[in-house]
Design a protein around this nucleic acid. Structure first.
Lengths: 370, 370
DNA sequence: TCCTGGCACTCAATGACCGCGAGTGCCAAT
DNA sequence: ATTGGCACTCGCGGTCATTGAGTGCCAGGA
């Protein structure tokens, strides 16, 4: 019997937790019942359900996977799994469907991240290789992620506060109007207009030189501390202008800390509208809220650290039948932002996790080159 | 009998076209059959269908609007309207539904733009008043439009090619790397890094001054012509660097001419997913294509010139049950970009047109102030 | 000539009914 | 502990009759 899925996704099903780990479950008594075969059954249920989109019964299970036992035995295991809350019956005479808790166990212990196919690797190279600037990198990344996972992709711009100042430029637009441009080492450029009292060109040049000397190469988070006493270097009459410029600089830094998020692949939602016909509205609503997206991307984690949020774990009612897979990405092993995808809870976790992880790594490498 | 809709939307139904106008329709013979009452019937059908979302029959029609005739008479009119292609029966024993052609006639001759309520006006002021920069204006506008029309909103960034140069800045990041910043009078800022041979600071200052003198105040579209022979002003050894910078400047202008478009209110699609359950996928797909959105916004028209595209008129198969209402907006009566909304063909045209028109006017005014 | 009431007709939608079959739980036997 | 057998449940899909909104047509009347 051919079992391509099995062979690709073999992971060890450990009999005991590793030191310092505990198995999911409420008590040790429950764990005891999670013997090897039951876990195997749960994995089979998840795999079948993900690929067929239909509740899976005991008979079909033993046919598709050679478990070496009879359907009746599987039924007993299923009953136990259901009692422990890992699977669920939509109605009395139907097959079983994994619960959020079941997916959680699957992700934690029953699956491994699936490496990308070489075709997918090539796609990543081809797609991201041609990026010219930061906007382009982010834009291409979101399209790429949406395309290879066929789900909704979310990419956060590199956070200003984690990156460092590469250059500050002051440009006199009119005698009393100055444009302040901040360039970070992640390639981000922010600008803002400042109204000041008129400043001489030489004063402005001096100001620019001193300001750059003071903060170039430092983290944005450190800038406020460094410019605190900056104005005192200047003669009294220039102080108001300097103060205005410094204030604008701080504003840019603080204000842009509310990170921008880019979304793509929304059309992929339509593909599984059959799955949750009532919930597509709330999902679209959630996706429109920048705040929600940022929360979903979550706290900054280490680079290439995969995080999976399943169903209710997302923390939003409207997203209770979706899951989110995210990863940090960054340069030099330092995480500057998060990216990820959102799809139905019945997603292909190994494949999605592999794709997110690979893209995150590659984007980090691109930022390193720049 | 109370007829609030009627009273709000009274427009004259002319018996004859004004000089220089022709009535819709294939021939004069067809027009002759479009007498006063039939047009009234068509209007009533559109209004009822838009508000109830259900095919409207002759009996319900005479009850809701006091047309002064019997259902049987209406039926005759309906038969005529159907023969001319303005309405259509989903099935033999059902009411009538307007066709695209019917909506077109309604928009052209049977409705007027509905002025906003004062509450809506206040919302516009409150929402757009607080915008701080161009990004903010665009972002707020798209949210506002989506909110008051409860449909999908699309706003195009002010086109680079129609605006003028306010300032060009050259910043040496490293000796051989220069950042070029282009600022337009619509507040847009574009930047790009250029690799050159090392340039002295004084050379760069000279270059900056001459370049600004040459193009500040001129339209972006005119810039290519003006900088054509620019490099000849410089000594031979600086030529390659100047050429590189000029090339980058032209690239920024050309490349950014592919205008950016911002989308909002996608979640509103879910509200009428009942209407076209099969077509929400294609619609989402279309909305993800920048090219499609730009085509929908269409050729630049005059400011505050409303354009309505109904169903197949959008030119996209996937959008055959949606309509698009757009308007140009700009400063000083000069159109710099388009904005609009997309909704089901069964939308409230007068209200949507009023909202789009009002927002476009107000955004134009905001740009004038800036 | 245009309008109207009447009438026969059509057909989508609704709900009751029913058989099929996938799937289950339980139990006695191994 | 596992298994085959068996009775039971219940959603799904098909058929069928009913209903009612809506139509087209026609003959009579202003």
């Amino acid at each position: 019997m051919i079992r391509p899925l099995q062979e690709r996704e073999v992971v060890d099903v450990r009999e005991e937790p590793r030191p310092g780990e505990t198995w999911p479950g409420d008590s040790r008594g429950e764990d005891a019942r999670l013997d090897r075969r039951r876990l195997e059954v749960l994995r089979a249920i998840v795999q079948d359900y993900v690929s067929t989109q239909e509740p899976v019964g005991s008979k079909a299970l033993v046919e598709r996977h050679n478990l070496g036992v009879s359907p009746a035995t599987i039924r007993n295991d299923m009953a136990a799994l259901e009692e422990d809350g890992y699977i669920h019956q939509p109605h009395t005479s139907a097959g079983r469907v994994p619960t959020d808790k079941g997916y959680r166990l699957f992700v934690d212990r029953l699956s491994s991240v699936k490496p990308l196919s070489s075709a997918e690797r090539n796609a990543i190279h081809a797609f991201l290789g041609g990026a010219v600037d930061l906007d382009d990198v982010v834009y291409r990344t979101v399209r790429l992620l949406a395309q290879i996972t066929r789900q909704v992709a979310v990419v956060q711009y590199p956070s200003l506060s984690r990156s460092a100042v590469r250059h500050v430029e002051l440009v006199a637009i009119t005698p009393s109007r100055v444009m302040l441009v901040l360039i970070t080492d992640t390639g981000r450029v922010e600008q803002r207009f400042v109204e000041t009292i008129p400043l001489g060109e030489s004063t402005l040049a001096d100001l620019r030189a001193r300001l750059n000397a003071l903060i170039v190469g430092h983290r944005l988070a450190d800038v406020p501390g460094r410019v605190e006493d900056f104005a005192e270097q200047f003669v009294h009459e220039d102080r108001p202008a300097v103060d205005a410029l410094v204030a604008a600089l701080l504003e840019v830094i603080v204000e842009q800390r509310e990170e921008r998020v880019v979304l793509g692949g929304t059309a992929n939602l339509a593909r599984f509208r059959q799955d949750f016909p009532d919930t597509i509205g709330p999902v679209l609503e959630a996706l429109e809220e920048q705040m929600v997206l940022l929360k979903l991307l979550g706290e900054t984690t280490g680079p290439s650290t995969l995080t999976v949020r399943i169903g209710h774990e997302t923390g939003y009612e409207g997203l209770s039948s979706t899951s989110v897979v995210t990863s940090g990405y960054g340069r030099d092993g330092d995480t500057v932002a998060q990216l990820g995808v959102l799809g139905p809870t019945r997603m292909d976790y190994p494949g999605t996790m592999g794709a997110v992880s690979a893209v995150a790594r590659y984007v980090g490498r691109i930022l390193d080159q720049a």
